[in-house]
Amino acid sequence: MSMKILTVDDSRTMRDMLRLALTSAGFDVVQAVDGLDGLDVLDRENPELVITDINMPKMDGFGFIEGARKIGRFRVVPILVLTTESDPDKKMRAKKAGATGWIVKPFDPVKLVDVIRRVAA
């Protein structure tokens, strides 16, 4: 059984790219379009790893991570933050919210899988 990964991103382009990179690496992918949707899909799909954007409408990545960490079974699911912002403040805020790690956009599919392996082996 392949690992199920939830991607949360408001950009269709980014969602499509993640899906392409992840499915070709053999992962199952479910998607959400913002933090609020993310919490909903999380609850329904029980992913084993989450990749989320930070800057999103309705609920941003921080809110999503905090929300996810409040749900018992997602307390320690690896959550990777996907962002172009190399701003260290942002990474720290994401960590504070409960993120496991981060991926810098634009991502190299190979490195993406590498990071996933690093936090979900």
Partner: peptide, 23 residues
């Protein structure tokens, strides 16, 4: 080592459909 065995390419469309349904 890879996290999981890579899936056969043929299963990709199904994955895509599933992913769409996910949201």
């Amino acid at each position: 080592e890879a996290v999981e065995e890579p899936k056969a390419a043929a299963s990709v469309p199904r994955e895509a459909a599933k992913a769409e349904a996910g949201g």
